[in-house]
Nucleic acid binder design. Structure first.
Length: 312
RNA sequence: CGCGGAGUGGAGCAGUCCGGUAGCUCGUUGGGCUCAUAACCCAAAGGUCAGGUGGUUCAAAUCCCCUCUCCGCAA
């Protein structure tokens, strides 16, 4: 079966790897064009491209998937199935309907919850304790197709974006291999998505990263871990941006102390406790702008912060 | 050449503008106090101030020039 694989970031690498090493015929890898990234605007290839290059796979990085740019190439490759994992662009119907087995999407949530661009982050942010991957037969809606297969996993208290992301990309790899087996054995059983429990996981924007201390410590903790290690939640102190890498909920109940929201509280030596609307959060590892990662205690040692200072 | 911050004992910083004894908070090591301690007291070790063995100067962490590295923004 000729597979065209469409994917871009790290999440999409594991499934591609699994397909490649299990001997499936990957006749083309489609990924986003290299983008200028970081200081100095160096062109950076997406992770999927790096893997494809290392393994001498056919690569195409179309600027657009519109018919005039892509149809000819699609016909030339004429895949039997297209597998899509976090490609980053909407596929047009002419593409979805082209392969004999259609387009299969590896989605990092249990659909219909968290349809959309950032299912992993949104699941953690909302305090979900379970998530998973869904393999879906793509149709023209956003993550609305029939479910072919799914694998669940837990989100534990200590998970962050990175750990959940890694678990799910491995599950995605297992799941897509299984679905291809089912196709070969003709045991596939597509199921329509439920009508209830639908939610949308919109892309993470800059404002999603700003910490609002007018929330509970648990909500803030979930936000911090959902965005760690990238792009990281942040707050500001004395007009300097501070990213929070690691945090911990110290208290989730409201105390009637007179401290202000966002204020640095008295704490055991070297610990940084901050008052939230409800409860107290400890910042453990942080990164002030222009600086490297550091322990919260370093802020006190360097006279950067004092009890009573306020984050905004 | 996208904009900006930064490199000083093991960590985080001050000192740089205005050149003149290497400083602070912590950690480490040793000792003391204590029923005890991550607390307190005393003492010590540890730095060619990113690099150029660059320029200016009687004298450079500090001023000038070049290089390297790290980080924030933007994309």
């Amino acid at each position: 079966m000729k597979i065209m694989y469409m994917g871009t970031p790290d999440f999409a690498v594991e499934p591609l790897k699994a397909l490649y090493y299990s001997g499936h015929e990957i006749c083309s890898v489609i990924t986003q064009p290299d983008k200028p990234k970081g200081r100095g605007y160096g062109l950076t290839p997406p992770p999927v491209k790096v893997f494809a290059l290392d393994n001498n796979l056919e690569i195409n990085q179309p600027q657009s998937l519109k018919k005039i740019f892509f149809e000819e190439y699609l016909k030339k490759i004429s895949p039997d199935v297209i597998i899509v994992a976090a490609y980053g662009k909407i596929l047009y119907p002419y593409i979805i309907n082209y392969p004999k087995h259609g387009c299969l999407n590896i989605h990092a949530s249990i659909l219909p919850r968290h349809r959309g661009a950032a299912p992993i982050q949104r699941a953690i942010m909302e305090g979900d304790t379970k998530t998973g991957v869904t393999i879906m037969q793509m149709d023209c809606g956003i993550d609305t197709g029939e479910i072919l297969y799914k694998l669940e996993c837990d989100i534990s208290e200590n998970d962050n974006f990175e750990t959940v992301h890694n678990k799910l990309s491995e599950l995605g790899a297992l799941a897509i291999i299984e679905v291809l087996n089912m196709i070969n054995k003709e045991t596939l059983n597509p199921v329509k998505q439920e009508d209830y429990g639908v939610s949308y996981a919109s892309k993470i924007e800059n404002e999603d990263c700003l910490i609002d201390f007018n929330l509970s410590s648990v909500q803030i903790y979930n936000q911090i871990r959902a965005l760690s290690p990238v792009p990281l939640a942040y707050t500001t102190l004395n007009n300097k941006k501070i990213k929070i890498i690691e945090a911990k909920v110290i208290s989730s109940i409201n105390d009637d102390s007179s401290y202000d929201i966002g204020e640095v509280l008295p704490a055991p030596k070297g610990k940084l406790y901050v008052k939230c609307l409800t409860g107290i959060i400890e910042f453990i590892t942080i990164q002030p702008e222009g600086k490297r990662n550091m322990k919260a205690s370093d802020l006190f040692n360097g006279r950067y912060i004092n009890n009573g200072d306020k984050f905004k």
